[in-house]
Design a protein around this nucleic acid. Structure first.
Lengths: 387, 387
DNA sequence: CTGTTAGCGCCTTCAC
DNA sequence: GTGAAGGCGCTAACAG
């Protein structure tokens, strides 16, 4: 029962709750079964093609053809088989079919944190497209841990998934899959390993736009709040932040870049510390929705006025950002669309492979444009500058 | 390419975004393949047990035993096989294994709307437990459409999922699965069909508490904003709302119950209309987070002060509710925990079936307690009453 | 047009 | 301890 109580103080989801078992009869060694001991788990053996054939008075292969629509079958027989299948509630065994045909309808999706609405949106987009095409989505949450990422990838190989969409961390998973001939599409991030299609957001461009927006308002001391600056979106956003400074001729101060680390439990104190140390900061650029949440809470805790004392921008727009007063200026990412697009690319890749297109072309690398949404949280700094 | 553009004006997620294809070479009928036509999709045939055996110089059965750890095998041979498997990158085929053993490691999860954070949390909880136990989660989003629900259930049967967790709409899916011997756990809602375990929130109790809270503050005209009042949580919450009124001796006015219908695109106008028609309303009880969002937006649009003019409560707490000013009083549901719990129940049920426990006991029906979190959005009505 | 045969990759008796 | 044989449910050749 030991729980790790996932989630630090910045994301207090998952409220506790007491349980009230109305009835509970899972008695492990209860011995004397009460009344009905009759049906002893009549579970096993769902109807098979054999049953259908028997019921319809044909052979198994005919039944197979009738149901799958492949090959010749007399219209009358076909109907008879269909009826029989319907009657006994036959559902073809995907596993067996896959075993034979070398190609399942399973697609893996590997994300970093399903509780983050960003990834949930992404997953929803993927599912939408997959479902429409009759594919099934197997979802694995690696919680940002490289080991689980690899474990997930291995599981996908084991279940003979036709393809995998992932938000890569270190790239080992991509390589593993690609090496085994599983089609891969990377979403939101690129690992650089393995030849695969990918869809990402223009992180550098978005960050540049955000930063420029702040600088144009007159801010000189803009802090960047991030959770990593090396391997993923964080790196690109940091790049955009710097580029905008250079372009505007505003000096960079690396002390204003706060990297709290991934899975940062105590992010808010770090933000507090930053603000204490640099009271001349007039604007905060939060690199994702979680950091924005943290920043917002801390600003409010201090009783600072937004944007009067400090301006705030978020990379990644969330519903709450237009519910609060003032609304939070944010870069809206087409997350759901990105999920949809990733799935479309994957499906296309799979199809082209089915047709055995020679080498099937170079990897498709798409970039989607985010959009800056200006709300009330950004304005010119109070005086003209601070000391 | 026809898109239904899911989502009405109340949940403007999924911001648009232009695409910038950097490279794109999926030319459908491109004919002349460029340079490297060499490797013609060396995809098929991942290494099989046969290869491992050959590599290790044993028979397939020995290799099987060595890897699965079942049956006798000389320590030395075992090591040799393991090494061989490792070397050639062997990953056992789950499909084949399932075909033989009648039991996959696949668990289905069927939810109504993954873009709603509530369901995302639920899914995350389920995934967490499943992943820890080496099970895979196949996620289907039925978008609240009964047909897709049944289609999803059928898909689960087809892939021989060992179990399924679902948030039932009409109950057909539950029955379908139960009839075919698939273990089912219902979460968040109960369909009443099929003998299955279930975990739900105490919706009636929670709603009663919310309503009592408002009535105790002195409100006499409390509107209920809901999206359905018949088959699911809406019914129970309505029941709680009524019960609290009766208990407090406050007369019920059915005109104050606004049912906008599931998938309500134009919910906000309906709320507006309600407020126009009944200016004596002093408190709003939103039955879920989406309705709360709508209500909040409408109150703000009208420039009404909360709680000065109108109090607001939400059933289902969301991050934004503590970010806004004043914070929104809400009933926090242990959603993530409910997902975890559902998965645990399912796993237990599966295990008990493996052991062939006779009839395995009556269904386990658990109820989790939500918690009312009082924030600034509720207070005594302005005067003492209105006319 | 239909039935018979074989085999996908694995596990599991059963002899040796 | 190890190998050979059979079969899970299905489909893709073949004959008839």
């Amino acid at each position: 029962m030991a729980e790790r109580g996932a989630g630090g103080n910045t994301s207090g989801r998952g409220t506790p709750g007491r349980r009230t078992p109305d009835r509970n009869t899972s008695g492990q060694g209860n011995g004397a079964g009460a009344t009905g001991r009759a049906r002893v788990a009549a579970v096993r053996s769902r109807p098979t093609l054999h049953e259908v054939a028997k019921e319809a008075g044909t052979s198994r292969s005919t039944a197979s053809r009738a149901l799958s629509g492949q090959g010749y079958v007399a219209a009358e027989i076909r109907e008879r088989v269909r009826a029989a299948a319907e009657r006994i509630g036959y559902v073809p065994d995907t596993m067996a079919r896959t075993l034979k045909g070398h190609s399942s309808r399973l697609v893996g999706l590997l994300v970093s944190d399903l509780r983050n609405q960003f990834y949930a949106e992404l997953a929803a987009g993927v599912e939408q497209v997959l479902g429409t095409d009759g594919y099934q989505m197997v979802l694995v949450d690696d919680h940002g841990e490289p080991e689980r990422e690899v474990a997930g990838a291995t599981a996908f190989v084991a279940m003979r998934a036709v393809g995998v969409i992932l938000t890569p961390a270190r790239g080992a998973a991509t390589k593993l899959l690609a090496d085994r001939g599983v089609s891969v599409v990377e979403a939101d991030r690129r690992s650089g390993r393995g030849r695969c299609d990918s869809v990402v957001i223009d992180n550098e461009g978005g960050a540049r736009e955000v930063t420029r927006h702040l600088l144009e308002l007159g801010h000189k001391r803009v802090a960047l709040l991030t959770d990593e600056t090396v391997w993923a979106t964080g790196a690109d956003r940091l790049r955009g932040y710097r580029a905008a400074h250079r372009a505007a001729g505003v000096p960079l101060d690396r002390r204003l870049v706060l990297d709290v680390g991934f899975k940062a439990a105590g992010a808010q104190p770090r933000v507090a510390e930053l603000l204490d140390r640099h009271p001349d900061i007039t604007a905060l650029f939060a690199v994702n929705n979680l950091m924005a949440e943290t920043a917002w809470m801390e600003l409010r805790r201090r009783g600072l006025s937004v944007p009067g004392d400090v301006s705030l921008v978020s990379f990644d727009d969330m519903p709450w950002m237009r519910m609060v007063e003032p609304g939070v200026t944010a870069v809206a990412q087409p997350t759901y669309e990105m999920g949809r697009r990733a799935a479309q690319l994957l499906l296309r890749r799979i199809a082209s492979r089915d047709v055995d297109t020679p080498v099937a072309g170079r990897p498709v690398r798409e970039t989607m444009q985010p959009a800056l949404i200006r709300r009330g949280s950004t304005a010119a700094p109070s005086g003209s500058a601070a000391g």
